[in-house]
Amino acid sequence: MVEKRLVITGAVLGGLAVALGAFGAHGLKARVDAEALGWWQTAVQYHMWHALAILALGLSGQTWGRLPSWLFTAGALIFSGTLYAMALGAPRWFGAITPIGGVLMIAGWAVLALLALRRKG
């Protein structure tokens, strides 16, 4: 059975990553410096990779994929969200929050690996 909420979450995050990537490439390129554009590109990249992971877990139908998916979601929102905000002019101290999102994404991968190892079959 498909985990509908995870598929929806992954699809929404994926669509947002495409839209934000296009905005960065076309709308921000002439308005921000190279450092800010780099932050934007990093945010889009991590945003999309984790959206795809969430989507894959949702489509797998395995209920044990829920916790990693929610860790990926929270991590991507915090990690990418703070980078997007800084690229748009938020204070640089937002960068102190960014690693929290990274830790959540790493935790999601670690939990996923542990749960997969514990699965029989």
Score class of each variant (00 low, 15 high):
Trp109Lys: 12
Phe94Ala: 03
Pro91Tyr: 04
Ala110Ser: 12
Pro68Ile: 07
Arg66Ser: 13
Met86Cys: 05
Gly81Ser: 10
Gly95Val: 06
Ala74Met: 11
Met48Cys: 00
Leu28Ser: 03
Thr98Val: 11
Tyr84Arg: 11
Gly58Pro: 07
Leu57Tyr: 08
Gly58Trp: 01
Trp64Arg: 13
Ala34Asn: 08
Glu35Gln: 15
Leu104Phe: 13
Ala25Ser: 15
Ala22Thr: 12
Val44Ile: 11
Ala36Glu: 02
Arg31Cys: 00
Trp93Pro: 05
Phe23Leu: 14
Lys29Gly: 05
Val18Thr: 11
Pro68His: 07
Ile54Lys: 02
Pro99Asn: 10
Gly61Asp: 12
Ala25Val: 09
Gln41Arg: 14
Lys29Thr: 13
Leu37Cys: 03
Gln41Val: 02
Val111Asn: 05
Leu104Glu: 04
Gly65Thr: 09
Trp40Thr: 02
Gly38Ala: 02
Arg66Leu: 13
Ala107Lys: 06
Leu57Val: 12
Gly24Arg: 01
Ala25Cys: 11
Ala22Ser: 13
Leu67Gln: 09
Tyr84Leu: 11
Leu112Ser: 06
Ser60Lys: 02
Ala56Pro: 05
Ala96Ser: 14
Ala17Asn: 03
Ala17Leu: 06
Trp70Asp: 10
Gln62Glu: 15
Ala90Cys: 07
Ala36Thr: 06
Ala110Met: 14
Gln45His: 14
Ser69Leu: 03
Ala17His: 00
Gln45Glu: 12
Thr63Cys: 00
Phe72Ser: 04
Arg118Pro: 05
Thr82Val: 12
Val18Leu: 14
Ala87Thr: 10
Met105Phe: 01
Trp64Lys: 12
Leu28Tyr: 02
Gly75Cys: 09
Trp39Val: 01
His50Leu: 04
Gly21Cys: 12
Asp33Arg: 11
Thr82His: 09
Gly89Trp: 04
Met48Val: 00
Val18Asn: 13
Asp33Cys: 12
Ala22Cys: 11
Arg31Gly: 05
Pro68Tyr: 03
Ala76Trp: 03
Leu83Tyr: 05
Ala51Asn: 06
Leu52Thr: 10
Val32Glu: 07
Gly38Leu: 01
Gln62His: 14
Ala51Glu: 05
Ala74His: 01
Leu71Pro: 02
Ser80Ile: 02
Met86Pro: 01
Ser80Asn: 03
Val44Met: 02
Ala90Leu: 06
Leu77Cys: 11
Thr63His: 15
Gly81Arg: 03
Thr73Glu: 02
Leu117Trp: 15
Ser69Met: 02
Lys29Tyr: 03
Gly75Phe: 01
Leu88Phe: 07
Thr42Tyr: 04
Ala53Thr: 11
Ala34Val: 10
Arg118Asp: 14
